[in-house]
Amino acid sequence: MTSTNPTLDLAGGASAPPAGPRPARRSSARAAETRRKWYEIIGLTTPAVIVYVMFVLVPMGFAFYYSLFRWRGVGPPTDFVGFDNYVLAFQDPIFLDALRNNAIIVFGSLLIQGPIALGVALLLNRNFRGRTVFRLLAFVPYVLAEVTVGIMWKLLLSDAGTVNAMLESLGLGSLVQAWLADLDLVIWTLLAVLTWKYVGFAIILLLAGLSNVPQELNEAAAIDGASWWQTQRHVTLPLLGPTIRIWMFLSMIGSLQVFDVIWVTSVPAVRSLGASATMATYMVDNGFFARLWGYGNAVAVILFAISFVAAVLFQRFLLRRDIEGAITRRAN
């Protein structure tokens, strides 16, 4: 894409095309200009590079280093244990539960949120009075802080909470559950809360994608006698492909590192049994609160490695065609 960018072509005076003898004065002015350009490049990018390297890249490097020690976080790490922490993690049934829960959340989110969001986005993309208001309302859960959502659902879903009370009053007493305390049920309850919270994000992205679909195409299809459904199925959906895949990618990465909603909504006792733990809550529980810093960092590296591999595979097989045009460049 380098060649297509309408940028200043200042690429180093030396490699500039017009060859042949040039007056000396001209070329020294050029050298000064090149130097000035590099000063600007360095001056403008350095602050961003420093902050980014220092707070994003360096910590991940340290995570790997610390993960090789048994270390309580006091003084420098000295008790080198190699990859023992990693072995321990994969032998801990609670960590394996956390892995399973993350898998449930990743696939559950994709399979449940995707169809719902698509339906709602197509609905809210229709032209009708009050559409703006309905859109705003559909985005509300996504805008709320994870913590407020967690506390809200924790109250609603408690044993004597509103959800159970409403089931009772509707004569559905048999459906009353210990939503957040039942060890087999809790992860599905949390999946439902996560779905409620994050489906709005998928809707926002899909609506943005839909507004890029030229209206003329829909009108042409209508003139050709296509019904609304046929238009959506054969015209709109194929054009939404890139947006859907980008959402899938972001949803997957988000699900792998989900922390806030799980942490606030689920009861610590249930979490410590593994029923509602995720990799991230397991990492914070063990690393930060139990002060097993070496072990916690090993879990961090595992979490990172899984996210990284998933992201690379996804990019390789699904995003390859889109990423160029869709994320990195605004095709004008």
Binding site: P59, Y66, F259, L303, F304
Partner: peptide, 8 residues
């Protein structure tokens, strides 16, 4: 992921 880097 920001979450993964939180301990270091």
């Amino acid at each position: 992921p920001a979450g993964a880097a939180i301990l270091p």
